[in-house]
Amino acid sequence: MQIVVRDQTDLALLKEKAREVRRRILTMVHRANSGHVGGSLSSVEILVALYYRLMRHDPRRPAWPERDRFILSKGHCTPVIYAVLADCGYFPMSDLRTFRRPGSHLQGHPYAPKTPGIEVSTGTLGLGLSTAAGMALGAKLRKQSHRYYVLCGDGEIQEGQIWEAAMFANKYHLDNLIAFVDRNYLQTDGHSEEIMPLDPLLPKWEAFGWRTCEIDGHDFAEIIEAVETAKGAPGKPTLIVARTVKGKGVSFMENVVGWHGTPPTREEYERAMKELEE
């Protein structure tokens, strides 16, 4: 439950944090025998960079008005956000054992009224970016300076509503909105470019009026630099295409379509945990 003070955080600490988060993701999904491992593992570095380095937030005051907000638009990847929130101290680490169980506040998809630290209830794809845009507009109306960070899946941006939100954020110049696309190229039924082609992503978003950049989504230095640049770019929302590996960190899960929503068996879990030992 230790909270890493941002100023003292160095890359080694962030990497160690990412390893711990990956282990918790696997344990949570294995224990529940249900949940989404692949897309959680692919976005670990993005969340760790945000929560331990980039975002202004205070786990003791989840409703602090000036906090930066994170919105998990790819709502199925609750294991990664729950692991990070618990580690930050938003709720007890032991709660992770109740993931996807009746009576738990840790629902399969995020439910903001129940879980401290969850800002927006998501689940059906394509809704989170629009909701974040509405929040960002609200902050502009109130002349507040905090920011909104959104994580979309790459499969998710096949939803038409994502492009509605993209137009809206451009119209209202929501430069307090920074969105990541977790570009791992895999979705439930296969490779994204075979299921419903998305490339080229950057020109699409640029045509919709967004500032864009493409980074290695597992490289902390690149994530941090991309966000710091976005913070200094007025007038436009920013879209960061983060190239990632689905199932990152567990050799037999990496780039394998089947690890979207399938829990590991005991044997697979043990092998994975062994790979993620120090």
Binding site: A132, G134, G138
Partner: peptide, 9 residues
């Protein structure tokens, strides 16, 4: 959803 976001704020 924009309305939901405004309500959240």
């Amino acid at each position: 959803c924009v309305a939901a976001g405004l309500a959240l704020e």
